[in-house]
């Protein structure tokens, strides 16, 4: 199963959701697989921060569906967030973990999930997230996306994907700071709120 194909399937389900995204090659893949979600996606380079940030966003906007696109390396970096989600039970957070069993962006050395023993979905269930699943086919991934985006409780979907990257895709040129402004302005516009407002005149 290729991550890019999964992203294309997920993108087909998304309209006004907000997405927090992990680091590495998945950034450029999402940029291309979901062009209609570019302003509504926060592209960040923050191992271990992705799902916690998505949960913070979900806590602040409880009426809005939030999607976290995390990774095996990112989730293993901060497993504690699964316990926090288990206790807090956010009703509007769908977490996808791209599990390619390697640190792909630095050439592919294995992560802890590569050896057939570590199961992130099982860890999530043990942390109190009842709806946590592992999928290995595109059909199953698509069905779980539909369920996860409608769930009224935290939903963790671990997608076992190959370590390949979609070839010949357009690179995203902006950095984390520009991405933040684009995302914040999108949230302001769609929520009719001010997050980063004008300075005082004094």
């Amino acid at each position: 199963m290729k991550r890019y194909d999964c992203m294309t399937a997920l993108a087909g389900h998304l309209r006004d959701e907000l997405v927090i995204l992990s680091l590495g090659a998945s950034v450029d893949e999402w940029y291309n697989a979901a062009p209609h979600m570019r302003e509504g996606s926060l592209f960040q380079q923050q191992l271990g921060c992705v799902t916690p940030q998505a949960f913070g966003l979900a806590a602040g906007l409880p009426h809005r569906r939030i999607v976290s696109l995390d990774t095996d390396g990112g989730m293993m970096f901060n497993l504690g967030i699964l316990a926090t989600l288990g206790n807090e039970q956010p009703k509007n957070l769908f977490v996808v973990v791209w599990d390619n069993e390697c640190y792909q962006s630095i050439g592919g050395p294995p992560t802890h999930t590569a050896f057939g023993r570590v199961d992130i979905a099982a860890i999530a269930r043990g942390a109190g997230i009842d709806k946590a699943y592992t999928v290995t086919t595109l059909e199953a991934f698509d069905a779980h996306c539909e369920a996860g985006l409608a769930a009224e409780e935290p939903y963790v979907l671990v997608a076992k994907v190959s370590g390949t990257v979609q070839p010949d895709i357009r690179r995203k040129h902006s950095d984390g700071r520009e991405d933040k402004y684009i995302f914040v302005r999108h949230v302001e516009k769609t929520e009719d709120i001010v997050i980063m407002g004008p300075s005082e005149h004094n």
């Binding site: 927090i20 926060l42 923050q46 271990g48 921060c49 916690p52 940030q53 998505a54 949960f55 913070g56 966003l57 979900a58 806590a59 602040g60 906007l61 901060n78 504690g80 967030i81 316990a83 926090t84 206790n87 807090e88 933040k180 995302f183 914040v184 949230v187 302001e188 929520e191 709120i193 001010v194 997050i195």
Partner: peptide
């Protein structure tokens, strides 16, 4: 005030960052 108990403070910092993006203050 909504309180969120975290497993370590770094997780808490990242959650606070997400709250900032929502327009709420943490």
């Amino acid at each position: 005030i909504r309180t969120i108990r975290v497993t370590n403070e770094g997780e808490g910092a990242a959650i606070c960052g997400g709250v900032f993006l929502s327009g709420k203050r943490a």
